[in-house]
Design a protein around this nucleic acid. Structure first.
Length: 1035
RNA sequence: GGGCGGUUAGCUCAGUUGGUUAGAGCGCCUGCCUUACAAGCAGGAUGUCGGGGGUUCGAGUCCCUCACUGCCCACCA
């Protein structure tokens, strides 16, 4: 027995006191006077800092020979078990270092955190590695904007100084997004935080490039790329978005050079005509049969007053007779299709624009004009020359740079490519046809990436994304990996004036081909996705050698990648390509060669939905409908927002984020807070009355080896239940009453059984990434079962006033004491388990309450280091479930009747009950419950069915409330009539089906039997209803 | 031009391999300040599951078709 004073008991009380004081509120005297409403702002920040400071979620690199570490220390550093199946590893999709947290991040991180915490609480080594991405273009843009404000520019600074500025920027602001992550409660291992430009990772990136080069998988070549004239860099196909816009199709007359006629071409981009080198028509096009071979004097092409350029008309299949005039101008340097035509016909490529998309034609009147200004002027000049035939409206998709929004200018330039096809590569060789970049047999890097998914080594959830992935992989082009930026991993290649390439690990002094010392490093950097595509192994120490580092041995392949479909191709596909490629060369921990199954960067990919606004609109800055998670968190609390996202995260559909929903879950948090207050209040009362409170002591995780048995070895979490069960059995044996007496109160047996059911379902849901299901199960259990029913009933058992006056005999008082003690133990045990169930979803609130519960000595440093409830931890008492559900049905019926009859809320009333033994058997033990929950003063058992207007019937019982008030006969008649019609209809339908021999013959027996039983019940109910209707007094 | 989703209560969404009376939250109506919680408690109303056709003993669930809607991919000037 404890004789501690209530004031000393609750650390929760003192902690909150301090917080409340800081916030200027009056200091509460005890936990009973804790704020009635839950205020997340008082606790969340504190726990977020605590978790980080205590390094609770760090996972140490396993020592080379440490298997079998004896259990995990209760918190802080743990060692991963080498090669153990019980480890769960995830990589955080690195947010851009320039980024601010948005709802997409929050959804992503909530889901990952729930999984990380769940696995951790199941006794697995749960490692979640955070980091940030240097985000080449985004970051460079950000800093350039800053420079512009300061009146300078990247070019004025020079490359080296600029890079330094970006680093400065990163040092200053780079942690903004990770600081925001901490507020979300992400249980990541901060000791492993990386930045993609860290020197460790940079070395690996360089090595990866060099190896791919040596393997002939990277080549440099001239090709039309998507050129962003604002950023002045090439961008990949994926970084281009298309937008349908109203445009114009210009029909322009090109006169023949010999003056014998002309041909009319159609173009949407007249300004590029200055770069035309031919006009193409389809060889089968009768209209132009005679024109093929003629020369054209290209209008407006005169430079410095010279003559116009002449260009040929040629036949090429690409020209479609149906489109425009059937004649197309050919501008190889500014259009990928034209480029291909140029290749086929050995035409030159005339680059007529500079990097900023201004016309570059010295001597031409258009020189120096922006491309759109040039278009206007050219159209005007054509018109003046009488060469503009017509202008048609034309809808077409224009290409925009995703990053800068600039209209993409296809532009011929030298770039570096990662090959996906088996074809001879000539480094620095001539032009590459687009068809060569996509067609043909796949090389190993693409083949492996396809096989990894096709063979099931990587599983997508939802599964349909594997199809999307396959579709894309089967159609990709070579990947342009070079960017003309200054911020990023610089390509380790040097060029000599003759165009020879020297790829080297350290700065070379001469060209490896011709020996000249006149060499210069390529100014290009690598696509950001190239480096992030390597992360799954570079974060674990891969350095380009094929050495198996301890981290790789322990954590590769990672278990799961959680991400949005928007980066499926950008990142997921690239990780698969690069992971499979490089890791195949790294041996397994046992020295065996690695197969594709273990080379993959992750075993599973969970693709989540997009978070939209309440009106299902995509959030965008321009629309101004962006919901800032931090702002929402501030208003509702992180836990409530997390729970909202989890409960709405059903696979396959986007999330329309609704604040109404969040309000609901804030209420849920408040509900739990108040349930906790109720429990603390009773613990204090108990201690004041010198009644011992048994806190669950075994909720922490035991040795991992033990846990892997699946929790069947013992009931870790419910010691008091076990005890009471034993005593119950004895009681049953001793009892000479032939009717079995429930040894424990029904509510105890029931809530524990429900806990078992809920744990089973929640674990299954999480295993299937059904966050919504798991959340709803836990919500239902906590609020519906625990708070609405169990807590209300258990109040009956919590008797603290055990005085001689109240309990005259010592037998009575002992029984009361025992009942209170047992009830408290169950209450606390169940509540503790419920908190643990909820903990992955609402880590802050549960942490706070859990610590308060174990005021003196929490069994672990954090609830996050305790065990997630498993079904086997609790007896699944089926009979208790049935018994309780009948009782609940009865209570609900009585409540409804009372309401109908207008019984004042506070007034007790007697009932009459006609029921089978299933319900009446234990009824004497339930009288108190009936009184408390349905204000039943007395129960009269009736042998005859009850059909009065004050009665209600179910298949299992009739119940009548005895109350002298006239009922609304008309309303009752209406209700019963409606009910009768419904029942009749249902019975008729059922009977028809049962009469159908094809149904009874073909349907499985349990379905037919079930339907029979249901029909019988319905008939009973129908008869009762009809009787009740007949018995209604006539008006 | 290809491909993939979605359409279930006023709103936001669940609904497992077809199987007994389609669910939840919010909102709505009625009554309650019942000493954990009014961010609460209790009771209640609300659905020809987008339209049509088919398969089946049985369809919200499978197939076909139409409509509306969203997304991804794509070199048509």
């Amino acid at each position: 027995m404890s004789d501690k004073k209530p004031q000393e008991n609750s650390r929760n009380a003192t902690e909150i006191k301090r917080e409340v004081k800081l916030n200027g509120a009056p200091e509460p005297a005890s936990s009973m006077q804790l704020p009635k409403a839950y205020d997340p702002s008082l606790i969340e920040q504190r726990w977020a800092e605590h978790w980080t400071r205590e390094r609770l979620f760090d996972v140490a690199t396993p020592a080379t020979n440490s298997h079998n570490s004896p259990g995990r220390p209760t918190g802080g550093q743990r060692e991963a078990e080498k090669g153990s199946a019980s480890s769960f590893t995830m990589l955080l999709p690195p947010p851009n270092v320039t980024g601010r947290l948005h709802m997409g991040h929050m959804l992503n991180q909530t889901e990952m955190d729930i999984l990380a915490r769940w696995h951790r609480m199941r006794g697995e080594t749960s490692l979640w590695v955070p980091g940030t991405d240097h985000a080449g273009i985004a970051t460079q843009m950000m800093v350039e904007r800053q420079l512009a404000e300061q009146g300078t520019s990247r070019k004025a600074l020079g490359r080296e100084a600029f890079e330094q500025r970006v680093w400065q920027w990163k040092e200053q602001y780079g942690s903004a997004i990770t600081d925001q992550m901490r507020r979300l409660g992400a249980s990541v291992d901060w000791s492993r935080e990386y930045f993609t430009m860290d020197s460790r990772l940079s070395v690996a990136v360089k090595e990866a490039f060099i190896r791919l080069w040596e393997q002939g998988l990277i080549y440099r070549g001239a090709y039309i790329v998507n050129w962003d004239p604002v950023q002045q860099t090439a961008v990949s196909d994926l970084e281009v978005t298309h937008e349908e816009r109203a445009a114009r199709l210009y029909h322009v007359r090109y006169p023949f050079a010999d003056g014998t006629g002309s041909i009319v071409i159609a173009t949407t981009r007249p300004e590029t005509m200055l770069g035309d080198v031919a006009v193409a028509v389809n060889p089968s096009d009768e209209r132009y049969r005679d024109a093929v071979g003629k020369l054209i004097a290209l209008p407006l092409s005169a430079v410095s007053g010279g003559p116009a350029r002449t260009i040929p008309i040629l036949a090429d299949d690409w020209a479609s007779p149906e489109f425009g005039t059937g004649a197309v101008k050919v501008t190889p340097a500014h259009d990928p299709n034209d480029f291909a035509i140029g290749q086929r016909h050995s035409l030159p490529s005339l680059l007529i624009m500079d990097e900023t998309a201004h016309i570059h034609l010295p001597g031409s009147p258009y020189h120096g004009l922006d491309r759109f200004a040039a278009r206007e002027k050219i159209v005007a000049d054509l018109e003046a020359a009488g060469l503009l035939v017509e202008i048609r409206d034309h809808k077409h998709a224009i290409a925009l740079s995703q990053r800068s929004g600039a209209v993409i200018e296809p532009r011929l330039s030298m770039q570096w490519f990662l090959a996906v096809n088996k074809k001879p590569q000539a480094p620095g060789g001539p032009f590459i046809e687009r068809s060569e970049m996509s067609g043909g047999e796949r090389n190993s890097i693409a083949r492996n990436a396809i096989d990894a998914v096709a063979q099931g080594h990587i599983k997508f959830t939802p599964e349909m994304y594997s199809k999307t992935y396959m579709e894309w992989m089967n159609n990709i082009h070579d990947w342009c990996i070079s960017r003309q930026l200054w911020w990023g991993h610089r390509i380790p290649a040097w060029l000599c004036p003759d165009g020879h390439i020297t790829v080297a690990r350290t700065t070379p002094t001469e060209c490896s081909t011709c020996g000249t010392t006149n060499i210069q490093q390529s100014s290009d950097v690598l696509d950001t996705w190239f480096s992030s595509g390597l992360l799954p192994f570079t974060v674990f120490g891969w350095d380009g050698s094929n050495a198996l580092t301890p981290d790789l041995a322990a954590f590769y392949p990672t278990s799961l990648l959680v991400t949005g479909f928007d980066i499926l191709f950008f990142w997921v596909a690239r990780m698969i390509m690069l992971g499979c490629h490089f890791m195949l060369d790294v041996p397994m921990p046992d020295g065996a060669p690695r197969t594709l199954a273990d080379a993959v960067p992750f075993k599973g990919v969970y693709i989540h939905a997009l978070v939209r606004d309440a009106n299902r609109e995509k959030m965008s800055k321009t629309k101004g409908n962006v919901i800032d998670p931090i702002e929402i968190i501030t208003r509702y609390g992180t836990d409530a927002v997390r729970f909202t996202l989890a409960s709405m995260a059903s696979p396959g559909t986007d999330i329309a984020f609704s604040e109404a929903r969040t309000e609901g879950y804030r209420a849920f948090a408040n509900k739990i807070w108040n349930a906790a207050r109720f429990i603390f209040m009773n613990i204090e009362r108990a201690r004041a009355a010198n009644i011992e409170v048994t806190l669950p002591s075994a909720t922490t995780l035991g040795a991992p080896s033990k846990l892997r048995l699946g929790g069947k070895e013992e009931r870790l979490s419910a010691p008091s239940i076990e005890r009471s069960e034993m005593s119950g059995e004895q009681k049953n044996l001793d009892d000479d009453n032939p009717i079995p007496t429930p040894s424990d109160p029904i509510e105890s047996r029931w809530i524990v059984a429900r806990l078992s059911e809920t744990a089973a379902a929640a674990n299954a849901a999480l295993a299937a990434y059904r966050f919504d299901e798991a959340a709803s199960l836990i919500y239902q259990f906590f609020w519906g079962d625990l708070c609405d029913w169990y807590l209300e009933i258990v109040k009956l058992r919590l008797v603290f006033d055990i005085t001689p006056e109240a309990f005259p005999t010592s037998e009575d008082s002992e029984r009361a004491l025992a009942s209170t003690t047992t009830a408290l133990a169950t209450l606390v045990t169940v509540f503790d388990a419920a908190l643990r169930l909820l903990s992955p979803f609402m880590p802050f609130l549960t942490e706070e309450i859990w610590h308060a519960l174990y005021s003196q000595a929490p069994p672990a440093k954090s609830i996050a280091l305790t065990r997630f409830p498993q079904a086997a931890d609790f007896p699944a008492d089926k009979s208790a479930l049935r018994e309780m559900s009948l009782l609940q049905e009865l209570i609900v019926a009585i409540r409804a009747l009372r309401k109908e009859l207008g019984v004042p809320e506070k007034e007790s009333a007697p009932i009459r009950l006609h029921a089978g033994p299933e319900l009446t058997l234990h009824l004497e033990f339930h009288q108190e419950i009936l009184d408390r929950l349905a204000r039943v003063s007395e129960v009269h058992i009736s042998d005859a069915p009850l059909t009065g207007a004050n009665s209600r019937s179910t298949a299992a019982f009739d119940v009548a409330v005895i109350f002298e008030k006239k009922i609304d006969v008309a309303a009752e008649r209406e209700r019963l009539t409606k009910e009768l019609a419904k029942l009749d209809k249902q019975i008729a339908a059922n009977e028809a089906r049962l009469a159908d021999t094809s149904f009874t013959g073909k349907a499985p027996a349990h379905i037919v039997d079930g339907l029979r039983k249901q029909t019988a019940d319905l008939v009973t109910l129908r008869d009762k209803t009809r009787l009740a209707l007949d018995n209604l007094p006539r008006e």
